[in-house]
Amino acid sequence: MLLLLSAIFVITLVSVLGYSMVGWAPFEMRWRDALLGAMLPGDGDRPGFDDIDLREFWAIYDTHAPPLVRIGLRAATWFLTFLPLFVSGCRKPFFRLDADRRDRFLRAASSSRFYLVRQLMMTVKTFAAFGYFSNGVVRGLFGIPSGTPGPTTWSNG
C-alpha cells in the first residue's frame, strides 16, 4: 500500500507541478468539483457546495492564491481522485464513484493512518468550507450579514 501511495504521489507531484504553471484544465475542474461537492453535499433543505455560485470565489483564488496554495489544491485533487483505484470497494477514480461510495471514501480518507492523505483531505475540506461560506446567501442562512464585496448570490436561490 505504501508503495502504491508513493507511486501516486510521484505521478501527482509531476503532474501538479506541470499543470500549476497554467490554469485549471476542464477535466481537472471536474475532478476538483466532484471532490468539493461530495465533501459538502446539499440535502434539498440546505444548499451544498455544488448548489452555490462560486464564480467570485474562484476569481479571488485565481487572482490571489500563491503557488503553494495552488500546488496544494492541485495535489489534493489529483491524489484523491486516483486514490480510490487502490481502495477495495471503489476501484474507480473518484469522479466515477456513485454518491454513496464517494461519501464512504471521504470518511475513510479523513481518518487515514497516512499523514499525507489526512493533510490532503484537510486541504479539500478547508476549500469546501471557504468556498461554501464565501457565498452571501449561505452566510445569511447562518444569520451572518454579508457586508462584503465578495460573492452574494446562490444560483438556486
Binding site: A38, L40, P41, L106, A128, A129, F142
Partner: peptide, 24 residues
C-alpha cells in the same frame, strides 16, 4: 470566521454537511 469553524469539524461528506447544520 464561520468557514474556519466549519473546517475544524472532524467529519467529511454527508456527516460534515450534517454537522454544519448545527455549527452555531
Amino acid at each position: 470566521d464561520i468557514a474556519v469553524a466549519a473546517a475544524r469539524l472532524k467529519s467529511a461528506g454527508r456527516a460534515f454537511a450534517e454537522e454544519i447544520r448545527a455549527l452555531d
